[in-house]
Design a protein around this nucleic acid. Structure first.
Lengths: 180, 180
DNA sequence: CCACACTATGTCTGAAGTGACATAGTCGAT
DNA sequence: ATCGACTATGTCACTTCAGACATAGTGTGG
């Protein structure tokens, strides 16, 4: 009954023990590129995982009204995660606002549409440059079995995505004329 | 205050008057590729749009306990839609289960991961072939201003996406060795 | 010494989305 | 004739998610 968010949390914990706060930070970067959650969602999820016996924690004195809780995977949590990894992902419905706007773009002024795509293109190119810098930091793909393989493989996916997206934006801008 | 779903409905209605049922059908194909909604959501949304004065309807006798309602855009709805089209889309968080699994793939057996990616690759290739057939049915891009421009441009996006995705799957399979 | 950023936990409200349930006419095939 | 698929509208319960609110210790810089 564990949700995908639950597995995302387990996947973070598989790389080392962390507090809910740390997990939330990971959900912004780098995992935020493919799964996001606010800290409120994470604390709630941790309580579910705890009730299911998939994680445990050790309390330490820390800031705030409550104790700081350092969570770790239980053997059962680790087994569940391993089993989940290779189960075929159920496909989620795509929801892409830019593509929806494109579907209705024929109603608008070409110049305004061109500007919108130019902005999108700039954003994609900036992200692409960032990803390329990150990729250079790896000296080629880490071996499978190394946790860093996960980071590298997802980065490759992001790289391909940004390139595809940028190319589509360029094609759109092309279609809309030079607008000089 | 209109939601993105509301604009999706308006975008369908901009191409011709339809019943809620017809809109729901459009939300499966072709719009379902980039925005989906169940019929229950659409009926609820139509009531909101009606209250906001963005759509109207004419009732006809039809099957079922209620009258059949053929919805159309009002002038105000049309104006709102046009204004929305070129407003920069707010970015939604990505949620991609396959990429999340990839992040945790180092925990699993390479053979099982390879099989999962092979299945994904097959699905992408099948969709790609379908899109290519659809693209061939257009004899090149329709001109901007033609509603079919929206169909073509979104198809181009889908084509690029499937290619990027298939390529990434192939790269992953490559990384996982020949597994003979 | 004080302000501010960061660490750290949690609750609550409301919106969005999913899937089941409910009803009923029409039309084609067996 | 009857059965099932399709047209057509809607409600309800449940889950997920986003964002605001609430609390409080620690460490850094001015």
């Amino acid at each position: 009954m564990t949700s995908t968010l639950g597995f995302a949390v387990l996947a973070v914990l598989a790389r080392g023990d962390r507090t809910g706060y740390d997990i939330a930070a990971a959900m912004r970067r780098p995992i935020g590129f493919f799964w996001t959650a606010g800290h409120s969602q994470i604390h709630a999820e941790l309580q579910k995982l705890l009730a299911a016996g998939l994680v445990g924690y050790e309390a330490e004195h820390g800031p705030g009204p409550q104790d700081k809780k350092v969570y770790h995977l239980t053997d059962e949590g680790s087994a569940e995660l391993r089993a989940w990894v290779t189960r075929p992902p159920k496909e989620r419905p795509e929801r892409d606002e830019l593509v929806l706007k494109t579907y209705a773009a024929w109603l608008a002024e070409a110049g305004l549409v061109r500007r919108m795509f130019a902005d999108q293109l700039a954003a994609h190119e900036a992200r692409l440059a960032e990803y390329e810098r990150e990729e250079a930091a790896f000296g080629g793909p880490p071996s499978f079995g190394d946790p860093r393989f996960g980071n590298y493989a997802t980065l490759r996916c992001g790289l391909g995505y940004e390139r595809h997206r940028a190319e589509w934006c360029r094609w759109m801008i092309d279609q809309l004329g030079d607008g000089s």
